[in-house]
Design a protein around this nucleic acid. Sequence first.
DNA 1: AAAAAATATTGACGCGTGTAAATTTTTTTC
DNA 2: GAAAAAAATTTACACGCGTCAATATTTTTT
Lengths: 343, 343
Amino acid sequence: MRDHRVRNMEEFAALSGLSRPTVSKYFNDPGSVRRSTREKIEQALERYDFRPNIYAVNQNRRSTKTLGIVVPFLADPFFSEIARTIERMCIDAGFRPILFGSHGDAGVEVENLENLRVLKPAGVLMAPLGRLSDRPTIEAFCADVPTVLFDSRIEDLGEAFVGSNNEQSIGMIVEYLCRTGDAPTFFEMRTPANPNAGKRRRAYEKAMARLGFEPRIVHAEGQGWEIEEIGYREGLRALSDRLFATDTVLCSNDRLAIGLLAAAYEKGVEVGRHERCAMRVAGHDDHPYARFTCPQLTTVAQDYEAIAEMSLTSLLDRIDREERSQTTSITLFDGRLVMRESA
Amino acid sequence: MRDHRVRNMEEFAALSGLSRPTVSKYFNDPGSVRRSTREKIEQALERYDFRPNIYAVNQNRRSTKTLGIVVPFLADPFFSEIARTIERMCIDAGFRPILFGSHGDAGVEVENLENLRVLKPAGVLMAPLGRLSDRPTIEAFCADVPTVLFDSRIEDLGEAFVGSNNEQSIGMIVEYLCRTGDAPTFFEMRTPANPNAGKRRRAYEKAMARLGFEPRIVHAEGQGWEIEEIGYREGLRALSDRLFATDTVLCSNDRLAIGLLAAAYEKGVEVGRHERCAMRVAGHDDHPYARFTCPQLTTVAQDYEAIAEMSLTSLLDRIDREERSQTTSITLFDGRLVMRESA
DNA sequence: AAAAAATATTGACGCGTGTAAATTTTTTTC
DNA sequence: GAAAAAAATTTACACGCGTCAATATTTTTT
């Protein structure tokens, strides 16, 4: 049991009865040494619990076996969930994930990339802020480090992009809403940070046109990532001023819908798909809290797992091939309708 | 502008017209070199943007200027918020924060500590899982690395503990509820992961006794961090079976309250402090979503900033003094009553 | 049992920086 | 302007590990 502290690999090799290069070989790939040798090392490992100095290791390896993960906002459950999924997969793939949240701030996003640069990661998985992101910085970063973007696409950047198929998912929910009641009015932020917002609006317009309805859009004013607050405040206003043209509202995302539902409740406007209800509300993303809104929110679930897995696979693929690709491949996953009480 | 890549400090020193040791001195403390020297370096820095290799640096320094932050669950807004606050403060203090979330899993928490050990951080700020945490592992870690615990206390561990004063905050809200209506029934998980839960229950009992009421407790069955789900499911059951002895319910935390409010809504039980309402519900923590529940949740706000700042200050203090303290100092911050519609 | 193949060892160098001692240069003080 | 103090330079070693070439040993094949 843990006899004494082992200073370095030299000492540990001696304790194992082996030479340092052999032990080094083992740590880089346990399968590359003879079985009897491996057993010797693992036996010693149990007694002395030695771990190679990561700083010395990374100084000499070309690739550091660390992967950066950058998300715009850790407090947003979508990103904390997806980060968690990616982290786990990284570890299973033999990499060391390191997580950065940008707090919705472009300056912090740039800082995060600078910090990552210093860490010389093998690759980076990044969900950019979107419209607010400093494109030149990200471009320069992508040129130096293999980077896969997810969730928010930035035109022509990154080795690959993985996201959700807004056209499909919005089309699907618009169709559902039209089929079961009034055609939806679209509720979105006027100047959303996330580029998915624009795609969703266009998908809404397209779906409405296809179904023969006039698209109607209500814009919420306000900036930043306090999206529920904006949905609430602007929802109150829209309800007071009767801005919603129909009794059905499709929100650009669940966080906006959460705010709107709070506003409707406060106004005494009953929301739901039943006869007596005055209004239907739907969202997009299947936010973890969508099950606990009043009423429970009908929405579209994104495939977290698939997005995480595809992002990582694409990145590891690029890292393995050790060549930078000129084109950015794009993968989009379909959403799944989640029917609850609100619409 | 960015003429060419600078390989190392030797080369950069030559480009600055200085010797490497002097440049090294500058990077460790810009104030330690003559002003004219500093200007030379900063001028060169603008042209060549060199940054010392962090791996080579950390191999030789005793302390690594990185600070670990470990939280039990990044998807929980309380922790993502407090992590963000601490991160910012770390950077301002000249340290490099590195964030780990344990996903509510004791195994991951242990992994996080192991990974941190490898990184040889100057210190660690940790909110443990609580009851689920593997005490021996954390104890061994605290013995090796200066660690300050926050939020969840583990008896006799860490250089310091910073948390909230549950006795004060629960006492305050119990008093408020008793003054304005029925005395509250306490709603909590039977086997909560977080040790604050136990403190809150005892504080509730104490406050009720002080005010001359019989304490009444309803237990929610269920394990893990899906607290809203448990609150919802068990809330439904409690409402169906009329388990709440009074018309006022004080939840052990906001996440449980969010679930209970969803259950009440579904049951058609009107919640609020107005005449016509059948029930009052209060929470604890001032969760970011407490403003968007239906109705908005009356709760107790914890002082994020104060907890973050105090934790970091305590840690930096211990790091500076370069000595391990025998006693763990305890700091608790008072909560602030946040009155909204639900109670 | 001998030959061939696989694996381990020895010894050495390099990575980029921290750091210390001795020396030289620059700045400050009187 | 000389002496004292402060700062920079030179030189050298250390950190812990990756990696290579040459050699020795073990294992597998014939």
